[in-house]
Amino acid sequence: MKVNEDDIRQVAQVSKLALTEDEVKYMMEDLQASFQYVADKLSALDTEHVCDMDQVTTNKNVFRDDVCKDSLEREEILRNASEKENGYFKVPKVMEGN
């Protein structure tokens, strides 16, 4: 398992993280080592007949009743936003399809 700089750039793009070239290099080396360890370990483990453990909780069928409760005040919903306008959150123009 070899992680190269392009892999890092690609993953950074997907996770919307602007990285400097130094960071790319550093992360590449770091993750390279991490993957080496993880891959070495896990490949030695026989999981052929093991079911996936999707969720660790043993709870099942946990539901809520369909009953309205008060929402928060708009002022409280918006108060931590850096940009807002007329009761809306605000972002740079969204081009459809991006």
């Binding site: 009743d65 929402s71 009761g87 959150f89």
Partner: peptide
């Protein structure tokens, strides 16, 4: 538990869960 009613004033039918505030977690409506 926010209402689903259509046409409310913007951002008045919101809570920590449905605006994804840190720490808020979902419980499914039966």
């Amino acid at each position: 538990n926010c209402t689903t009613e259509f046409g409310g004033e913007p951002n008045t039918q919101c809570c920590p869960v449905c605006v994804g505030l840190p720490g808020a977690i979902p419980v499914l409506n039966k």
